[in-house]
C-alpha cells in the first residue's frame, strides 16, 4: 500500500469532514419528502360543499392486500347528508399496524376519497391506538394520534417532522403551514 493511496483516502475523509452533512438531525429538523410519498391516509372532502367524498363503498377494503380497512356504511339523511348521494361511511377504520402503505386503496377508490398523505410518525404504545377512525383521518385533522395527544398535553400545536415541496393535488384540501 502506497503512501499516495493513503493520502487519497484521507483526502476523501477530510473533504467530507468539511462539506455540508447529508444527514438530517431529525426530529429537530424536518425530513424533506417527495410529493408522492406514501404516508398516513387522509379522507378528503368536496371543497365546495364540505361533504365527505367517501360513499362507504368498501372498495378500498376489498382492494387492500393487508385487510387493514373496515368500512360500515349507512344511509344519508337527505336533510342532513354526510356525503353526496344515498350512502356514507358511518364507520371508517384503518389499522396502521397492518397497512403496508401500498396505496391500493387510493387506486380503488371511485370518488378519490381516501388518499395517502405524508405523515409517517405513527409509533404508539397500544394496539388499539393504531386503529385510525374517521376523525383521525378526515382532512382537517393534522398529525397522527400520538402527535395530537402530545400536542394536547403540552397545549402546543402539532409539530410535523417533514416538509414537502408541494402537496400533490389528490390531497384536496390538505395544507401544511
Amino acid at each position: 500500500m502506497s503512501v499516495m493511496a493513503l493520502a487519497k483516502a484521507l483526502g476523501i475523509t477530510l473533504r467530507h469532514f468539511f462539506s455540508k452533512p447529508v444527514t438530517i438531525p431529525y426530529p429537530d429538523a424536518p425530513v424533506p419528502l417527495k410529493p408522492r410519498f406514501h404516508g398516513r391516509h387522509v379522507l378528503t372532502r368536496h371543497p365546495d360543499t364540505g361533504l365527505e367524498k367517501c360513499i362507504g363503498c368498501s372498495l378500498c377494503a376489498a382492494a387492500c392486500p393487508a385487510y387493514a380497512i373496515y368500512v360500515e356504511p349507512a344511509e344519508n339523511d337527505p336533510e342532513n347528508p354526510v356525503s353526496i348521494g344515498e350512502r356514507y361511511a358511518k364507520v371508517y377504520e384503518i389499522n396502521m399496524l397492518r397497512c403496508i402503505f401500498c396505496g391500493n386503496c387510493e387506486e380503488a377508490c371511485p370518488t378519490g376519497a381516501i388518499v395517502l398523505g405524508y405523515e409517517f410518525e405513527l409509533a404508539d404504545y397500544r394496539y388499539s391506538d393504531f386503529v385510525y377512525t374517521k376523525e383521525d383521518l378526515l382532512v382537517d385533522t393534522v398529525g397522527s394520534k400520538p402527535q395530537r395527544r402530545e400536542a394536547k398535553e403540552r397545549k402546543k400545536p402539532v409539530k410535523l417532522g417533514f416538509e414537502v415541496p408541494y402537496v400533490r393535488p389528490e390531497l384536496e384540501g390538505v395544507k401544511y403551514e
Partner: peptide, 9 residues
Amino acid sequence: ARFRARNWE
C-alpha cells in the same frame, strides 16, 4: 339489509 355491507363482506 340496506347498506349493511357489500356482498363479498
